[in-house]
C-alpha cells in the first residue's frame, strides 16, 4: 500500500509555496524531507495530511497491485497518523486522560496502556499536562502514534525538545514502523538507522520544487555534514 502525491501545487497569499510536487510514500520506506527554512516543509506535510488545501494535483492511495483505493477524505485521514509541531496536550488533563481522549476518538481505547509504556510515560500517567516538561509533552504527543496501527506516519520534527534517550526512542519507533511495512514522511535530522534501500531523501527548494535524491547521495551528504560538525 502506498500514497502517491502527483503534481501538487499549492499557493498561498498569491505565491506558490509548492510547485508541482510529486512524491511516493511506499510501504517500508522512510522518506526524509529536507530543505532550508521557509521552503515549506511543514506546509508539504500538512498538504499531504489534508490540513492545507492544494490547488492542483492529487493524493491517491494505491494497494499492493497498484490499483487506486479511493480518494475520499474519510478514508485518507484514517490511513495515517499526523504529529505536528503542536502536541495537542491539554494542561488540565492528566497524561492518561489526554491519551484516553484520543484513544476514544480513534475508537481504540485498549491501546492507551501500550502507548504509555512505549513512550516511557508510565510513571507520569497521573500527572497533569501542565506539569510536563517540553520533552515530556512531546513524548505525549508522539504517544498518539501507538493508538491504532495506521500505514503512514507524517511527523514534523519529532525529535525537537527530546533528550538523547527520547531521540533514540522515536528513532527506534520510526525504524520499527518501517520494518513492519509502514511508511513514513518525516522532517528530521535524526538517523533512523534504516538501510539505504529503505530510505528516500526528499529535498524541497525555496522555490517550492521537490527533488528526490538518490539514497547514496543523501548518505554521502549526511556523512559529510557530520564530519563538518565534528
Amino acid at each position: 500500500m502506498k500514497l502517491i502525491a502527483s503534481d501538487i501545487t499549492c499557493f498561498r497569499g498569491g505565491r506558490h509555496v509548492l510547485e508541482s510536487v510529486s512524491l511516493e510514500l511506499a510501504s517500508g520506506v522512510a522518506s526524509i524531507l529536507r530543505g532550508p527554512n521557509g521552503s515549506g516543509k511543514s506546509t508539504l506535510l500538512r498538504v499531504v495530511a489534508g490540513l492545507v488545501d492544494h490547488q492542483e494535483g492529487k493524493l491517491s492511495w494505491l494497494d499492493d497491485e497498484g490499483r487506486e483505493i479511493g480518494e475520499d477524505d474519510a478514508l485518507h485521514t484514517s490511513l495515517f497518523h499526523y504529529v505536528g509541531h503542536l502536541d495537542a496536550v491539554k494542561p488540565s488533563l492528566t497524561v492518561r486522560e489526554n491519551l484516553d481522549f484520543w484513544a476514544g476518538l480513534y475508537g481504540v481505547p485498549g491501546d492507551v496502556e501500550t502507548a504509555l509504556q512505549t513512550l516511557g510515560l508510565g510513571a507520569l500517567a497521573q500527572v497533569p499536562g501542565a506539569f510536563l516538561s517540553a520533552g515530556q509533552k512531546k513524548r505525549l504527543g508522539l504517544a498518539k502514534l501507538c493508538l491504532g496501527t495506521r500505514p503512514l506516519w507524517i511527523l514534523d520534527e519529532p525529535s525537537v525538545s527530546l533528550d538523547v534517550e527520547g531521540v533514540a526512542l522515536i528513532a527506534g519507533l520510526m525504524k520499527a514502523h518501517c520494518e513492519t511495512g509502514g511508511s513514513l514522511l518525516v522532517t528530521t535530522h535524526v538517523d533512523i538507522g534504516l538501510k539505504a534501500e529503505a530510505l528516500q531523501s526528499l529535498r524541497l527548494s525555496v522555490q517550492g520544487t521537490l527533488k528526490v535524491e538518490a539514497p547514496e547521495n543523501a548518505q554521502k551528504e549526511n556523512a559529510q555534514k557530520e564530519s563538518n560538525n565534528v
Binding site: F11, G14, R15, H16, E19, Q207, G208
Partner: peptide, 10 residues
C-alpha cells in the same frame, strides 16, 4: 522559477 497566480489576479 515559480509563477504568480496571475490567472487569479488578472
Amino acid at each position: 522559477m515559480f509563477k504568480l497566480n496571475f490567472e487569479l489576479a488578472n
